[in-house]
Simulated scan of single mutants.
Amino acid sequence: MRIGYARVSTDDQNLDMQLDALGKAGCERVYEEHASGKNTERPELQRMLDALREGDTVVVYKLDRISRSVQDLESLAETFAEAGVEFVSICDQIDTTTAMGRFFFHIMGAVAELERDIIVERTKAGLAAARARGRVGGRKPVDKKTVTKMLALYDSKQMTVPEICDECNVSKGTLYKYVNERGAGRDILEDEHGKEDDANG
Rank of each mutant, 00 (worst) to 15 (best):
D72S: 09
L63Y: 03
T79I: 10
V88H: 03
C27P: 05
E54I: 04
I66W: 00
D64H: 07
T96R: 07
S69N: 13
C27D: 10
H106P: 00
L52Q: 09
A83S: 13
E54F: 01
E74R: 05
T40W: 12
M48Q: 12
V30S: 03
D50H: 08
Q46L: 15
M100N: 13
F103A: 15
Y31D: 07
E41L: 13
K62I: 09
T57M: 13
R53I: 02
E115Y: 01
R116I: 01
R29M: 12
T98P: 07
D50V: 06
G84S: 10
T79E: 14
T97V: 04
E41V: 08
E33A: 03
D64Q: 08
I107E: 05
D95V: 04
R102I: 01
V30R: 02
H106L: 09
S69I: 01
V30D: 01
T79A: 11
I94D: 04
E54M: 07
M108S: 06
A99R: 10
L49W: 09
F80M: 07
D72C: 04
F104W: 03
I118Y: 01
R116F: 00
G101F: 04
F105D: 03
F80C: 12
T97W: 02
R102W: 01
I90L: 15
F87E: 08
L45A: 07
E82M: 12
R102N: 04
E113K: 06
N39D: 15
K62F: 05
N39L: 11
D72F: 02
I66G: 05
F104T: 08
A83V: 02
E113A: 04
K38H: 09
